[in-house]
Amino acid sequence: MPSQPALERTWAIAGVIIATVAAFGGGLLAIFLVPLHIGSVPVPISLLITAVINVASVQYAYRVSGWRGAGFAPMIGWFLAVCAAGIPTVEGDVVLPGTWVGLGVLFVGAIAATVPIARSMMVNMPDRGGL
């Protein structure tokens, strides 16, 4: 039977992987919703989805693992989704267009992931005695 620390570490790694996959999938979902229109009016719901998914996945990764740097994994997952969708194909087709909603996804996503990561980095380490 595996020891308690080994189980906790496995659970932490699994949580970070789940958060990364969720950020990647959520990023793709938001990207595919960038061209959403009602009539001729663009509906920037992808900005909201990007913000919520990035904050939630980064917070989840940090809470479930307790590691300060855990939030980087979902951020990288989301960034890979943006890069994959933003690079044009040989024919010039691109999933994430360079419209203001597309640029907004990049800006909002980066800032939404940055805030919880920076806050978790600024938490001081617990006192382990000594100095």
Binding site: L96, P97, G98, A110, A118
Partner: peptide, 30 residues
């Protein structure tokens, strides 16, 4: 914080200052 916000501003404004213009695909911007 400084890195995240600076990189966005640099990626957005920098090429325009260098004379390349604003319009770039999101993949290039990323």
């Amino acid at each position: 914080f400084v890195i995240a916000i600076s990189m966005l501003l640099i990626a957005f404004i920098g090429p325009w200052v260098s004379g390349d213009g604003f319009g770039a695909p999101i993949g290039v911007m990323a």
